[in-house]
Amino acid sequence: MKATDKSCCTEAYEAFGLKLSQNQLVVALAGNPNTGKSTVFNALTGLKQHTGNWPGKTVLRAEGTFVHRNKKILLVDLPGTYSLLATSADEQVARDFLVLGRPHAVIVVADATCLERNLNLVLQVMEITAKVVVCVNLMDEAARRSIKVDIEVLSRELGVPCIPTVARDGKGLTELKDAVLDVATGVTATSPRQVSYEPHVEQAAARIESRIRPYLPGWVNHRWLALRLLEGDMSIIKAIIDHLGNGSEQLLLQEGSAVWAR
């Protein structure tokens, strides 16, 4: 499926309680806990913030806006999670927004001092959407601990832009905004690294994928959904069906009607 078809309509955001003005881009901010994610959020949005709850959940949602190169961007702070396996309400909220909210781009904040743990989340986000920018934060702390992160290698391995930052000192934020805008507007094409699973998992996923494809809109990553079905995660399935059922999708369905009409 094509990544460029993924940007979403206003109605889908409203299902998440977001109000969008004309021509605004929506960017989600994901990341592990304790990676300085909120520092990045504050540094990008300044005091233009608004907090509330995710609809129907007692999980705090913060959103803020900023303007970069004359583009208005709505930044949605997702709960800090280690993964998107949806074991907790936080993970569910983060995953649902990435899948159903279809942001124009996703920033994943990663801690440069423990890259491996953070890449786990990066890889999971990249399975859902290709429009990812990795913000490799806490570069100063990594340097203090004699950890050298090779950004070029990392970008190449991941197939998405990686930007080194020290968010608390404001370092690297302009570059980050540039990269996010380029990915969101399609100027930068990404080719995210896909995890290869054991052959029996891949085969089973492919089989399921072909069965569900005719019934699903184009913006859901079919492979990703097939994998969730395989591991018996019914929560996302339920969320997608609810989302499709609440009528907010009609506009989009026309656009993807070729898929829907079979």
Partner: peptide, 11 residues
């Protein structure tokens, strides 16, 4: 069940 998921989640 859930505990296993949590443990896996942690890596």
């Amino acid at each position: 069940g859930q505990v296993r998921r949590h443990l896996l989640d942690l890596g």
